[in-house]
Amino acid sequence: MALIDLRDVTKSYRRDQIEIPVLDGVTITVDGGDFLGLMGPSGSGKSTLLNLLAGIDRPTRGSIRIGEVEISRLSERALAGWRARHIGFIFQLYNLIPVLTAFENVELPLLLTSLSKKQRRDHVMTALGIVGLGDREKHYPRQLSGGQEQRVAIARAIVTDPTLLLADEPTGDLDAKSAGEVLTLLQRLNQEFKKTIVMVTHDPHAAERAARLLHLEKGTLVEQVKVGA
């Protein structure tokens, strides 16, 4: 059974009585352990699709099953709990909390668990170690480079050991070198730690790292290109 089963998903926004279709009958399946790249022109609905997978937005029609759960049927509260357990989200602009240190940022999702302080510390240091920033735990976001910030954000995304990692243009704001590091990290997470990743990107270099590529055009999937893993 596929890990993600997106069936005939439609999403439209209403603006002044006019329905603006964003996604139009999208069907995707993703197996566990896959690294899926999602490409397409601006406005094609990539972020919208990712947000639906993350359970922070709801489809207008269609079903989204992830693991055993049909998430479009969950209540707001249940959905929040589900996100905490199953989703690690990586944003283009890192979105670290500026008043919290790297450690505290990574610890944030663990505050929702019943882990003890000591256990939280172990988890955070492991995650920071994986992204290669074990020595930066006391740094605030403004004391870090863009690439380091994004790596802290990745540590925050993996610290709860989620089912699925979702990244929306994770290298969109980085220089080539930092982007390369972040992509290598995501690849490692996929290959060594068997994380399932869905990554939205504009960048062909980034897309190369994905095991599988999907193209979105005006809300529909137009081609599927298999890139050698």
Binding site: R77, A80, G81, W82, R83, N95, L112
Partner: peptide
């Protein structure tokens, strides 16, 4: 606003 949205994405319930 953004920070709150980020926390919600991480799974913080609106009640929290």
């Amino acid at each position: 606003t953004t920070e709150i949205a980020v926390m919600r994405t991480l799974g913080f319930p609106s009640s929290t």
